[in-house]
């Protein structure tokens, strides 16, 4: 019983990470058809925002010393700010470009951010202790669950409810949903395009920062490559979820987390190292049967 519960919590917390990542990517894709490859590097940049630039092996903690009620808003603001900055400096000039061009530009931007971090902090992973109280275990129904896992899941659920309320109940959310459905039409009806896109970038950046906080406290290291794996899974989640469908992205994120956790348990020990390869393989199989994704978003179907 205890171990089963442990698996459920593992799956949910891993799925939460993937779902948050997928949501950040799907939000931007929804409003401007941009597949943002720089998302993973924004995650890494948020973790490094806690440190003072230095290439020494020992991390010089700077903003990381703030109390948690200042630290969390600070990191969220860094993520949102960096994301909005990337839209202002780079993506604004690509409004008329086709999705493939924007995708490559974001790939290039991701590398620029990553190597900027490398220049400031070097490529060595650094150990940080971010919110250390969270690693204590708590006991639920006989299973020992790290407090962090519980908080990850709760935060994700809260974010999902908050975002749903935001998209359904506020004017800005309405505009964003309208823009995702049919951007040209929404503009004609008075939705201010640049404001909606900036809002999507800010939200997506804040989601990246939330992932950064979770990953940072989970692993206790800052590494310039740390966003890459989550980002890749998040991308896959947006594809199987149906590009641009927010609900699909979240659903697929949790599905991927579950599949990965279950494979970790049922695969023979020799094959466990290949868990990710099996997950990617499973994804390719899903795409054979549903190339348009699990929940295909309206307005993204190719029209003739």
């Amino acid at each position: 019983m205890g171990s089963l519960l442990q698996i459920v919590f593992d799956a949910l917390s891993l799925g939460s990470l993937y779902a948050l990542g997928a949501l950040g990517i799907a939000l931007i894709f929804g409003v401007m058809r941009l597949v943002n490859f720089a998302h993973g590097d924004v995650i890494a940049a948020c973790v490094f925002a806690l440190l003072w630039p230095s290439v020494d092996a020992v991390a010089i903690v700077f903003a990381g010393n703030l109390p948690w009620f200042l630290l969390i808003p600070f990191v969220l603001a860094v993520g949102a700010g960096l994301s909005v900055l990337s839209e202002l400096v780079v993506f604004r000039r690509f409004r008329r470009a086709n999705p493939a061009t924007m995708m490559i530009a974001s790939f290039g931007l991701g590398f620029v951010i990553r190597y900027f971090l490398l220049m400031l902090f070097s490529s060595r992973p650094k150990s940080i202790s971010l919110l250390p109280t969270l690693s204590q275990p708590v006991e639920i129904l006989g299973a020992r669950i790290p407090l962090l896992q519980l908080i990850t899941i709760l935060v994700t659920v809260a974010v999902l409810f908050g975002l749903t309320a935001f998209l359904r109940r506020t004017r800005f959310g309405l505009e964003m949903r309208a823009a995702a459905e049919n951007f040209t039409m929404a503009r004609m009806l008075g939705v201010r395009a640049n404001r909606v896109i900036m809002g999507a970038f800010a939200l997506s950046g804040a989601l990246a920062a939330a992932i950064a906080l979770i990953l940072g406290s989970q692993t206790g290291t800052a590494n310039i490559m740390m966003g890459a794996n989550v980002m890749l899974m998040a991308f896959i989640a947006t594809v199987i979820g149906g590009m641009g469908s927010l609900a699909g992205a979240v659903l697929a994120g949790f599905l991927l987390g579950t599949v990965a956790t279950v494979m970790q348990v049922i695969l023979p020990p020799d094959a466990r190292a290949f868990r990710d390869a099996f997950v990617y393989g499973a994804v390719i199989l899903v795409l054979i049967f549903r190339p348009q994704g699990l929940l295909s978003a309206r307005g993204t179907k190719e029209r003739v």
Partner: peptide, 25 residues
């Protein structure tokens, strides 16, 4: 044979997954 059934953007991301899969193996 699998990836070419996908269209545009989805195909691009799936090729990325292929790269990660080969690298992971």
């Amino acid at each position: 044979a699998v990836l070419m059934r996908l269209s545009g953007i989805a195909a691009s991301i799936a090729t990325f997954a292929m790269l990660a899969m080969v690298n992971s193996i």
